[in-house]
Design a protein around this nucleic acid. Structure first.
Lengths: 156, 156
DNA sequence: TGTATTGCTGACAGAATTAGTAAACATATT
DNA sequence: AATATGTTTACTAATTCTGTCAGCAATACA
């Protein structure tokens, strides 16, 4: 339960863009497909733009596209942008591990590091090309869409 | 960075008790050895007692002991008591996964589940007997102890 | 019986984090 | 200009985290 809502939203958005394969998606449409509040996506997408993951165009016929090939975007990348360090505890980060009073011989830390490494290995080994190919059918449950975007209509 | 301070403290305390091997440790002593504020341990230890991990005796010559053999206490057990579900996201818990609007074909969820399972495998595969045997030398850095427990003195 | 020593419990305050809304702004097209 | 889009910032409410404290409960021992 350590993945924040925004991280979740971001990964959904990138998956949606991957499935769209090139064509730009407007924020409104993106919000509808991912069932994310538009006002929140408004904050999430610029962050990903700054991180170089997506690219945007303004004005009519604007929208978002991926800025790289899906095979080059790992889940780890997205998660890191929104979550920071992946270590479960601050004494086990790779960069600036917080010194803990039990550094010497603290056998707990090595386990936390193993958890960290396993997490990184999994998230780093999955690209959005993988995710898209696995996401066969319709990946959005219409019955739960009601209220997610008021003017989404029944369309489809 | 999803392991809370209290979880950290709890695991340290169990390790300390394991290293003590049977002999009871007073809360005050436990706090000193683990460099945890005594007032916080006062909340953490009863929780572990309720969970059946430790056992306590009151009065003079009282204190805490393990309630099981160290080989029978996994790190997973402790973490679960204080953290709840180990899944990184609420749609990937084993018990009551929160339905997310992308259930159908959402390929992200399976990755979160892999992270969850890897975490469980690691934490569940390590017992405090393991940890104690790995924790060779003095596992408390004296130089960082200052201020951790005011009346600990410079002693040692 | 009473006192000292220990653990137990619940209330609480401050800080930090999270989630979501909204208003005003910038840029591109027509 | 007018419209359609993305951008930025401020803000509120809710929740969680961390640590402190005061007072209660039980045990040992004189």
């Amino acid at each position: 339960m350590w993945v924040s809502r925004r991280t979740d939203y971001a990964t959904r958005a990138v998956l949606a863009l991957t499935l769209e394969d090139g064509g730009p998606l407007k924020l409104e449409e993106l919000a509808r497909r991912t069932a994310v509040p538009q006002s929140v996506l408004e904050q999430v997408m610029p962050t990903m733009r700054t991180a170089g993951i997506v690219r945007s165009e303004r004005g009519p016929s604007g929208g978002y596209r991926l800025n790289k090939k899906p095979e080059e975007i790992t889940l780890e990348r997205i998660v890191r942008v929104f979550q920071g360090p992946l270590a479960p505890i601050s004494c086990a980060t790779r960069h600036n591990p917080e010194p803990c009073p039990m550094t010497i011989g603290c056998s707990l830390r090595s386990v936390w590091e193993e958890v960290r490494d396993a997490t990184i290995a999994l998230l780093g080994g999955v690209t959005f090309a993988d995710l898209a190919s696995r996401a066969g059918g319709p990946w959005l449950d219409p019955s739960l869409l009601v209220g997610a975007a008021q003017d989404a209509g029944g369309g489809g």
